[in-house]
Amino acid sequence: MRVSPLTRRLTVIFLGLALTFLYAPILTNFVFSLNSDRFPTIPLGDFTLEWYRLILADALVIDAFANTVKIALIVAPIATAMGFAAAYADYRFNFFGKKLVLVFALMPPLIPLVVIGLAMLAYLSRIGLSGTLPAIVVSHIVLTSPFAMAIIRLRFSQIDGDLEFAAQNLGASNWRAFREVIIPSTKTSVLAAFLLCMAVSFDEYAVTWFVGGLEETSSVRILSFLQSAVSPRINAIGSITFITSITLILGAQVLVLRRLTRA
């Protein structure tokens, strides 16, 4: 668009302010996690690692982190595999009611978390699962697989649909064509989906809080801390959470973007 340089500059400055608004809470969190004062305020106190030492000595926090990792490592492969299967099926086959199935598969992230939480809690208690780690795993797969499907489907839309049939015409079986054509061209997006699923599972607090009972993940632990009092320990756990999820999301983005820019 042709606009005056001033308008252009002001708009870009506004964009910078929006980014600042979104990243300021993340940055202050890191600062206060290393600050000796019990109540987070300025001027800052001394540099300390005390809050990290405290949470690392807290058995509840350690258990919660162990649960989080365990759950994410089970959820991510299953959700990615199912998301991949659904994306591939959508790309390759036509069947009755496909649109409906797709809309349905993309719905879970759009339903309010407390509503899913309540529905899951009622359902999982009926089948005797509520309050267990499997309950959390089952719900996280529902919540993460739509993301996996979306990312991988995006990649499929860039693949020439005739390649696979060409391979078959040259005598390759379904599986051989799949192995030679589909796997090589989708493996980066599958890895990206895997990382994204881990990040979403890692961050989920609401449904986990509903169905987990006494089993806690690190996000639910943060929720419990929030309910009790202000404490720099929240900042310390928060920093660890931020670093983990930012790493996962950036990893996923680099994988997706590398593909996009190369294509």
């Binding site: 809470p25 993340i26 961050d203 996000s219 943060i222 756990i237 928060g238 959470t241 930012i246």
Partner: peptide, 11 residues
């Protein structure tokens, strides 16, 4: 995708 809970605590 980054801990909304902690960001609200920061606010």
């Amino acid at each position: 995708f980054t801990s909304y809970l902690v960001r609200i605590y920061s606010w």
